[in-house]
Amino acid sequence: MSAIDFAAAAPARIAMPAPAVRARPYASPYLAGVGIGLVLLAAYVTVGHGLGASGGFTSVAVAGVAAVAPEQAAASPVLGGYLGGGGRGPLADWLVIELIGVALGGYLSARLAGRARRTVERGPRVTDRARLMYGFGGGVVMGLGAKLARGCTSGQALTGGALLSVGSWIFIATAFAAAFAAAPLFRREWT
Protein backbone atom coordinates (compact mmCIF):
# COMPACT_ATOMS: atom_id res chain seq x y z
CA MET A 1 0.00 0.00 0.00
CA SER A 2 1.60 3.19 -1.11
CA ALA A 3 1.80 6.50 0.60
CA ILE A 4 -0.49 7.95 -2.04
CA ASP A 5 -3.47 5.82 -0.98
CA PHE A 6 -3.20 6.94 2.60
CA ALA A 7 -3.16 10.54 1.53
CA ALA A 8 -6.22 10.07 -0.65
CA ALA A 9 -8.15 8.74 2.33
CA ALA A 10 -7.46 11.89 4.33
CA PRO A 11 -9.25 15.22 3.70
CA ALA A 12 -8.20 16.49 0.30
CA ARG A 13 -6.69 19.69 1.65
CA ILE A 14 -4.19 17.75 3.70
CA ALA A 15 -1.59 16.30 1.38
CA MET A 16 0.26 14.84 4.30
CA PRO A 17 2.48 11.91 3.46
CA ALA A 18 2.11 8.94 5.77
CA PRO A 19 4.63 6.13 5.91
CA ALA A 20 3.68 2.71 4.63
CA VAL A 21 1.92 0.35 7.03
CA ARG A 22 4.88 -1.61 8.25
CA ALA A 23 7.17 1.42 8.60
CA ARG A 24 7.71 3.01 11.96
CA PRO A 25 6.29 6.46 12.43
CA TYR A 26 8.60 9.43 12.21
CA ALA A 27 10.24 10.64 15.38
CA SER A 28 9.25 13.85 17.08
CA PRO A 29 10.68 16.76 15.09
CA TYR A 30 11.58 18.52 18.32
CA LEU A 31 13.59 15.58 19.59
CA ALA A 32 15.23 15.08 16.22
CA GLY A 33 16.00 18.78 16.12
CA VAL A 34 17.60 18.73 19.55
CA GLY A 35 19.62 15.73 18.44
CA ILE A 36 20.81 17.57 15.35
CA GLY A 37 21.63 20.57 17.49
CA LEU A 38 23.82 18.40 19.70
CA VAL A 39 25.56 17.01 16.62
CA LEU A 40 26.19 20.56 15.44
CA LEU A 41 27.55 21.46 18.86
CA ALA A 42 29.81 18.41 18.75
CA ALA A 43 31.23 19.68 15.47
CA TYR A 44 31.87 23.13 16.93
CA VAL A 45 33.75 21.75 19.90
CA THR A 46 35.80 19.19 18.03
CA VAL A 47 36.79 20.81 14.76
CA GLY A 48 35.82 24.41 15.42
CA HIS A 49 33.26 24.74 12.69
CA GLY A 50 29.75 23.53 11.92
CA LEU A 51 28.06 21.47 9.27
CA GLY A 52 27.68 22.05 5.58
CA ALA A 53 26.38 20.52 2.42
CA SER A 54 26.59 22.77 -0.61
CA GLY A 55 30.34 23.08 -0.13
CA GLY A 56 30.64 19.34 -0.42
CA PHE A 57 28.62 19.41 -3.61
CA THR A 58 30.97 22.04 -4.99
CA SER A 59 33.94 19.78 -4.32
CA VAL A 60 32.25 16.99 -6.23
CA ALA A 61 31.38 19.32 -9.10
CA VAL A 62 34.97 20.57 -9.23
CA ALA A 63 36.36 17.04 -9.20
CA GLY A 64 34.09 16.21 -12.11
CA VAL A 65 35.19 19.21 -14.14
CA ALA A 66 38.83 18.66 -13.25
CA ALA A 67 38.60 15.12 -14.57
CA VAL A 68 37.47 16.24 -18.01
CA ALA A 69 38.83 19.75 -18.34
CA PRO A 70 41.52 20.46 -15.76
CA GLU A 71 42.56 23.82 -17.21
CA GLN A 72 39.00 25.06 -17.07
CA ALA A 73 38.68 24.00 -13.48
CA ALA A 74 41.91 25.64 -12.45
CA ALA A 75 41.09 28.83 -14.31
CA SER A 76 37.66 29.27 -12.83
CA PRO A 77 37.61 31.75 -9.96
CA VAL A 78 34.79 29.79 -8.39
CA LEU A 79 36.04 26.24 -8.87
CA GLY A 80 39.79 26.80 -8.72
CA GLY A 81 39.80 27.30 -5.01
CA TYR A 82 38.45 23.83 -4.41
CA LEU A 83 41.20 22.01 -6.24
CA GLY A 84 43.71 20.13 -4.10
CA GLY A 85 46.21 22.46 -2.50
CA GLY A 86 43.99 25.49 -2.97
CA GLY A 87 42.95 27.69 -0.13
CA ARG A 88 39.95 25.60 0.77
CA GLY A 89 41.70 22.24 0.79
CA PRO A 90 41.03 20.65 4.16
CA LEU A 91 37.53 21.98 4.73
CA ALA A 92 36.39 20.89 1.26
CA ASP A 93 37.41 17.30 2.00
CA TRP A 94 35.77 17.46 5.37
CA LEU A 95 32.43 18.39 3.86
CA VAL A 96 32.56 15.60 1.31
CA ILE A 97 33.21 13.03 4.02
CA GLU A 98 30.43 14.59 6.08
CA LEU A 99 27.99 14.23 3.16
CA ILE A 100 28.95 10.61 2.74
CA GLY A 101 28.11 10.24 6.41
CA VAL A 102 24.77 11.98 5.89
CA ALA A 103 23.87 9.53 3.16
CA LEU A 104 24.99 6.62 5.29
CA GLY A 105 23.07 7.81 8.32
CA GLY A 106 20.01 8.49 6.24
CA TYR A 107 20.19 5.02 4.73
CA LEU A 108 20.62 3.29 8.07
CA SER A 109 17.76 5.16 9.64
CA ALA A 110 15.47 4.52 6.69
CA ARG A 111 16.39 0.88 6.52
CA LEU A 112 15.85 0.27 10.20
CA ALA A 113 12.55 2.09 10.12
CA GLY A 114 11.31 0.18 7.11
CA ARG A 115 11.23 3.31 5.03
CA ALA A 116 13.87 2.47 2.48
CA ARG A 117 12.39 1.88 -0.95
CA ARG A 118 12.96 2.87 -4.53
CA THR A 119 10.23 5.33 -5.29
CA VAL A 120 9.53 8.92 -6.13
CA GLU A 121 7.95 11.18 -3.54
CA ARG A 122 5.45 13.35 -5.31
CA GLY A 123 1.93 14.74 -5.13
CA PRO A 124 -0.91 12.76 -6.71
CA ARG A 125 -1.34 15.08 -9.67
CA VAL A 126 2.09 14.81 -11.29
CA THR A 127 3.92 11.99 -12.94
CA ASP A 128 7.21 10.61 -11.68
CA ARG A 129 8.92 12.16 -14.66
CA ALA A 130 7.52 15.61 -14.01
CA ARG A 131 8.48 15.38 -10.37
CA LEU A 132 12.03 14.45 -11.29
CA MET A 133 12.25 17.43 -13.61
CA TYR A 134 10.96 19.76 -10.91
CA GLY A 135 13.48 18.18 -8.59
CA PHE A 136 16.34 18.78 -10.96
CA GLY A 137 15.21 22.32 -11.69
CA GLY A 138 14.80 23.05 -8.01
CA GLY A 139 18.28 21.69 -7.45
CA VAL A 140 19.74 24.00 -10.09
CA VAL A 141 18.16 27.05 -8.48
CA MET A 142 19.28 25.93 -5.03
CA GLY A 143 22.80 25.45 -6.35
CA LEU A 144 22.84 29.03 -7.60
CA GLY A 145 21.34 30.35 -4.40
CA ALA A 146 23.69 28.42 -2.18
CA LYS A 147 26.78 29.63 -4.01
CA LEU A 148 25.64 33.23 -3.83
CA ALA A 149 24.81 32.92 -0.17
CA ARG A 150 27.97 30.99 0.71
CA GLY A 151 25.94 28.14 2.08
CA CYS A 152 22.61 26.36 2.37
CA THR A 153 20.28 25.26 5.14
CA SER A 154 23.07 23.24 6.73
CA GLY A 155 25.89 25.72 6.44
CA GLN A 156 24.05 28.99 6.80
CA ALA A 157 20.69 28.41 8.46
CA LEU A 158 21.82 25.80 10.96
CA THR A 159 25.50 26.53 11.48
CA GLY A 160 25.44 30.29 11.09
CA GLY A 161 22.03 30.62 12.68
CA ALA A 162 23.15 28.97 15.90
CA LEU A 163 26.18 31.27 15.98
CA LEU A 164 23.93 34.31 15.53
CA SER A 165 25.50 35.44 12.29
CA VAL A 166 23.44 38.22 10.76
CA GLY A 167 23.88 37.01 7.18
CA SER A 168 22.73 33.52 8.12
CA TRP A 169 19.52 34.80 9.61
CA ILE A 170 18.97 36.98 6.54
CA PHE A 171 19.31 33.76 4.56
CA ILE A 172 16.74 32.00 6.73
CA ALA A 173 14.30 34.86 6.43
CA THR A 174 14.53 35.31 2.66
CA ALA A 175 14.56 31.56 2.00
CA PHE A 176 11.40 30.95 3.99
CA ALA A 177 9.69 34.04 2.61
CA ALA A 178 10.52 33.16 -0.99
CA ALA A 179 9.50 29.53 -0.51
CA PHE A 180 6.12 30.52 0.91
CA ALA A 181 5.65 33.09 -1.83
CA ALA A 182 6.55 30.67 -4.60
CA ALA A 183 4.56 27.74 -3.19
CA PRO A 184 1.36 28.46 -5.17
CA LEU A 185 3.39 27.98 -8.36
CA PHE A 186 4.12 24.42 -7.32
CA ARG A 187 0.78 23.42 -5.89
CA ARG A 188 0.27 20.98 -8.71
CA GLU A 189 3.50 19.21 -7.90
CA TRP A 190 2.66 18.54 -4.27
CA THR A 191 -1.10 18.57 -3.72
Partner: peptide
Protein backbone atom coordinates in the same frame (compact mmCIF):
# COMPACT_ATOMS: atom_id res chain seq x y z
CA UNK B 1 20.81 33.73 -2.63
CA UNK B 2 18.43 32.89 0.19
CA UNK B 3 15.43 33.86 -1.89
CA UNK B 4 16.65 31.78 -4.81
CA UNK B 5 17.32 28.91 -2.47
CA UNK B 6 13.83 29.12 -1.04
CA UNK B 7 12.26 28.92 -4.47
CA UNK B 8 14.47 25.96 -5.33
CA UNK B 9 13.53 24.28 -2.09
CA UNK B 10 9.79 24.42 -2.65
CA UNK B 11 10.25 23.32 -6.26
CA UNK B 12 12.62 20.50 -5.42
Amino acid sequence: GGALFGVGMVAG
